[in-house]
């Protein structure tokens, strides 16, 4: 599966490299578009010294970590969100007659470096924020773990959003509420949101484990909601559970797929 992924991704990459002009434009474009979110944070901190109890460097850290996870999962699996387009155009049928998983083919379809802009932008923010926090190694080890788990969680949400399109072929935008909505949610400390919402994204759609819970450990902060301490280490568990759910949903979707058109 990994081999097939790399093979397809590499082939698409080579094809897109034949037109470097638009490609570079699009990388820069995605860098700027995602930079707008940082501009918003900057405007907010022009007016306040802390948001939800977190200062600018801490918010940038939360933003950068979640942004990195989201960008990685978007590059690797984000194309799955185009499922409904493929179903409508009939190209999903042709994926099913090839001896490779439909998921891998979806994920690599038109694989391009365009989304690197977002990745670079998140990395820059994180690189600026980290030195200002002065973290000891005893807590900083969690950062790569949280970025990895966050990537798996977002990838699972992309997959769930794709699987949903087997049912809602005419309304793929619903998935955006969870994928891009999840990205927007994790850009700010969860302490700004209502308690019900935070509990929902802790125990139902586990977005809280993308950055919030592990970050409470990294920043050594008490949980404003007073949730159990061990949740800070539960990100790998959440990632595993959600990815299993996503895999099952995708398989169920394929099984009940009804090819339309002639």
């Amino acid at each position: 599966m990994v081999r097939t992924y790399l093979l397809l991704a590499w082939t698409w990459l080579r094809a897109s490299a034949q037109y470097p002009g638009p490609l570079i434009m699009m990388v820069i474009g995605s860098f700027i578009v995602s930079g707008l979110d940082v501009a918003a944070i900057w405007v907010i901190f022009e007016h306040v010294g802390s948001l939800g109890g977190f200062d600018l460097a801490e918010v940038m850290f939360l933003y950068g970590a979640a942004g990195l996870s989201f960008a990685l999962s978007d590059i690797l699996f984000g194309n799955v969100e185009r499922l409904s387009q493929h179903i409508k155009a009939g190209t999903f049928d042709t994926m099913l007659i090839r001896p490779a998983g439909a998921f891998v083919q979806m994920a690599t379809d038109r694989f391009s470096v365009q989304r690197l802009g977002r990745l670079a932008q998140a990395a820059v923010v994180l690189a600026i924020a980290l030195p200002q926090l002065g973290l000891p190694a005893g807590r900083a080890w969690m950062i790569p773990v949280m970025i990895l788990c966050g990537t798996v969680i977002f990838a699972s949400i992309f997959t769930l959003g794709g699987a949903m399109q087997f049912l809602l072929t005419d309304a793929p935008e619903v998935a955006n509420a969870f994928t891009y909505g999840g990205s927007a949610l994790t850009q700010y400390p969860l302490s700004v949101y209502g308690n019900e919402l935070v509990k929902g994204v802790t125990f139902i759609v586990p977005l809280a484990f993308v950055n919030w819970q592990p970050a409470l450990f990294v920043l050594d902060r008490p949980d404003p909601l007073g949730l159990p301490y061990w949740l800070r280490f539960a990100a790998p568990l959440a990632a595993v559970v959600l990815s299993v759910a996503a895999a099952l949903a995708w398989r169920a979707g394929i099984r009940r797929y009804r090819s339309t058109g002639s």
């Binding site: 397809l8 082939t11 094809a15 049928d93 042709t94």
Partner: peptide, 27 residues
């Protein structure tokens, strides 16, 4: 399998790249 109404080839790739992919995918 061949569909007359739509291609099973990769739309944006040159023909020979499509064949090369087929070689790998079908081993």
């Amino acid at each position: 399998v061949v569909f007359g109404q739509r291609t099973t080839l990769w739309w944006d790739l040159p023909l020979k790249d499509s064949f090369e992919l087929v070689r790998h995918l079908y081993k």
